[in-house]
């Protein structure tokens, strides 16, 4: 992303001595407006996503009761289920019911298990969210270490080798990597369980151990992508005039990297992290199934096989909401890193 650097938008201060007081005030207002705008975007996007899901899952297929029961269902069975699910009411009413229920943690009853959907989802969330957090932490750490090292050794064998590896890392499907990790670390070396999840009550260490291989499988791909971005962002920033200024001040190569290059280079890295998080979360759906970990991914796949649409719909919304929230956080971090954005966004 390139940001136009413009000096004339604030040039009113130049002749106006009171302009400085005005500008501090303005900065605070700017920040609040920036935050409010992003929050509004978050909410609108969430509502939009929920509508897309509702339309796709409940209106497009025609008769949801028929979908749930399958084509062999008798008319009476369909009619019964239709009333039971409250599907005889109009779509806007049903949408409102869904959303207002969600706000108080009410997701309806699973058709397949006859338990509240929230009960199923809650347990799964406690696995998928930590898994996603561990994976993204691994990815970013890997990316920064590899990216910075490669950039520091630009065009040297280390750089070329690491970038070759990262190209490979991008190409390996995460579920295949998961299978390879199981074969090597679980079956061959027996260091890790081949799958399953003991539950957090069994001890943090044990649970963490169960999530480690899945997290590595997920983090490798995203980490490889981010490492490439980090490297090119750092190299790009190195060519900026202000880096030369920093060197002219007497800062060493290393001090320049930490104090002047890194923060600017983080801007594109952050953008791509936001984009990649969606991919990472989609990856958890697959990888959870490879490791038989009872997270949201396993839940949703079972729900599909059981034609339990109400579970599918709520889980998909939850996953989408996570993506949207992470992108909101990314936007907020931008504002922290790059002071130009706030002013520009008004």
């Amino acid at each position: 992303m390139t940001l136009p650097v413009s000096g004339d938008n604030v040039s009113l201060h130049e002749t106006n001595p009171t302009g400085v007081l005005f500008s501090t005030c303005l900065a605070k207002i700017t920040m609040s407006i920036f935050f409010a705008k992003r929050l509004l975007t978050l909410i609108v996007t969430l509502i939009g996503a929920s509508m897309v899901i509702f339309v796709v899952m409940e209106i497009l297929p025609g008769d949801p009761a028929l979908v749930i029961l399958g084509i062999n269902a008798t008319d009476e069975m369909v009619a019964l289920l239709t009333t039971e699910l409250g599907l005889d009411r109009s779509a806007p009413v049903r949408y409102w019911d869904w959303i207002s229920g969600l706000l108080v943690g009410e997701m309806g009853m699973s058709y397949a298990y006859k338990v509240p959907v929230w009960e199923l989802v809650e347990g799964a969330l406690w696995i998928t969210v930590p898994l996603a957090i561990i994976s993204i932490t691994f990815s970013i750490t890997l990316a920064l270490v590899v990216g910075l090292y490669a950039a520091a050794n630009h065009n040297k064998p280390a750089d070329i080798g690491l970038m070759g590896f990262s190209q490979l890392g991008i190409s390996i499907p995460n579920f295949w990597l998961a299978v390879l990790l199981i074969m090597f670390f679980a079956i061959e070396l027996r260091w890790f369980p081949a799958g399953g999840f003991p539950g957090w009550d069994e001890g943090i260490f044990k649970s963490f151990k169960a999530l480690l291989l899945p997290a590595i499988a997920l983090a490798t791909v995203v980490g490889a992508i981010l490492a490439r971005i980090t490297r090119s962002a750092v190299l790009e920033v190195y060519r900026e005039d202000y880096v030369r200024t920093a060197r002219a001040k007497g800062l060493s190569q290393r001090a320049t990297l930490w104090l002047h290059v890194l923060r600017n280079a983080l801007i594109p890295v952050l953008t791509v992290t936001g984009i990649q998080f969606a991919g990472l979360l989609a990856g958890t759906v697959v990888v959870e199934n490879v490791f038989h970990i009872p997270g949201l991914g396993s839940l949703v796949l079972k729900a599909i096989n059981n034609r339990d649409t109400i579970v599918v719909e709520n889980v998909v919304l939850l996953l989408a909401a996570m993506v949207i929230t992470v992108n909101f956080i990314v936007d907020m971090l931008y504002a922290v890193i790059d002071p130009r954005l706030k002013a520009q966004d008004i």
Binding site: T45, V52, I53, V56, V67, V285, V312
Partner: peptide, 25 residues
């Protein structure tokens, strides 16, 4: 563009999950 924004929350696997939930695998 707003429509693309919404759909960005649905990577290929998620949209596939929704679609197969309705139309079958």
């Amino acid at each position: 563009m707003r429509f693309s924004d919404f759909s960005f929350a649905f990577p290929a696997i998620l949209s596939a999950i929704m679609i197969t939930a309705i139309l079958g695998p």
